[in-house]
Amino acid sequence: MHSDNPSKKICRFEVGHKYCDLFERLGVPRDDRWRSLLSCLRSTQKYSYYSQEQKKQVADLLIKTLEDADFSEERYCSVLREYQAILASSYAKRLEEALQESADLADDFRRSVYHHKGAVEGLEEKSVAAVRSGADPEDIVAQLRDTFQEVISVLKEDAERLDHICKTDGLTGLFNRRAFDENLKEGVKAWESDKKPLCLLLLDVDNLKEFNDRFGHRIGDQALQTFSQIMQAVAHRSHDDDDICCCRFGGDEFAILLFGDAVTDVVEIAQAIRSRLETYDFVIRDNQGRIIKRNVQMTVSCGFAYAHDFSFDNLGARILDAADSALYEAKDLGRNRVVEYSRKDDSCKFTVLSGGDVA
């Protein structure tokens, strides 16, 4: 569609283009910018690198925009800003978490430096004292060896502590995303080389944003800590750290990697965690410890997938996307559900195993 008037907005979609016909039926003006923006909103669903939550937010934005039928310049700028904010949200979230983790590591490293300074100064004092003591040379060597061993021991402890901090979520004490990535990589390697079973269970605390808005982030943090304790207790009831890896994936999302024989218990573990949290009476306290509300209910949505449903090619990303899709399905069906992802004949299937209408 073209126009001889340069001031008139035009549409360069060809007549008969499926989007052009759709926009005509929906009353979208023949404006390149509006139709391009709405096409972008619509095509976001096709890209795998956006999360299911982002895709849902974009879909909701598209539907609302079409329902409002406000195609003014001001509304165009508003929709564009919302779209950009949605696409940038996951990056901003990861960046914020990474910056906080870096700040925590910097503080700990600073403390370690001061600790090392004291150890090195002690090494110098003891070494000088040993040499000036006039003792037998073999005794002096033995004293120096013991002194150096003390410093080496301190350095080893610090290295182990820093490694632990790098892989631990500060709020919940669970493994963090870095540890998750390492354990997933090892699990994929074990499956590919030895066919050691691997399963990924993703869990998302339902409506945490609304919970935080209502009670505050301090209480929200307590809720995450309580949930992590429930998850740990259930997951490790019959399995040790070699078979189960519990992680805080980020924000209100958690992950459990199951290896070997533990894979057969994924359904039982997911159902037990969902049931425990659903019946848990969360107590809200003020900053003085006084109870201000009892019997606050929380729920969790769960989705999981097995490594054996996929080829070796890019297996880590495939199982993560599959479990995320199952989690999104649980959310989309009304939350507080456990959903299994499975594949057969190149098609995927979602099965509700507990919560809601069980298949």
Rank of each mutant, 00 (worst) to 15 (best):
L208V: 12
A272P: 04
N212Q: 06
F249N: 01
I230Y: 03
V267Q: 12
V267D: 13
G250E: 01
V263L: 06
L200I: 09
I219H: 01
E268M: 07
F175G: 11
F215R: 02
A190P: 07
E192G: 03
R218M: 09
G216H: 00
F180A: 13
D204I: 01
W191N: 07
V263W: 02
L208I: 15
S193C: 11
A255M: 09
D158F: 05
R214A: 10
F227E: 03
C246I: 05
H236A: 01
G260S: 12
G251D: 07
N207I: 02
L224R: 00
F259N: 13
R248V: 13
K196F: 03
F211N: 00
N212F: 07
E253W: 03
A190K: 13
N207W: 08
E192L: 13
E268Y: 07
D169V: 10
K195A: 14
L155P: 06
I165K: 09
D194R: 10
Q232C: 11
F249Y: 15
T168I: 08
V263Q: 02
I256A: 04
R237W: 06
C199K: 04
Q222L: 07
A255D: 04
Q232N: 11
L258Q: 05
T168V: 11
R177H: 09
L258N: 06
N207L: 10
I269S: 00
D261F: 05
L202P: 03
S228A: 14
K195P: 04
W191E: 10
L171Q: 04
R214C: 15
R177I: 12
G170M: 10
K196V: 14
I219N: 05
I165V: 13
G170V: 09
V267H: 14
K185L: 10
A223N: 03
D252I: 02
G250Y: 09
N212T: 05
Q222I: 00
G260T: 10
D169W: 02
H164Q: 12
G251Y: 05
L171F: 04
H236E: 13
D163N: 08
R161H: 08
L174S: 03
E186R: 13
R178T: 13
W191T: 14
D194V: 08
D252E: 15
M231F: 00
D181N: 11
S193G: 07
K156A: 10
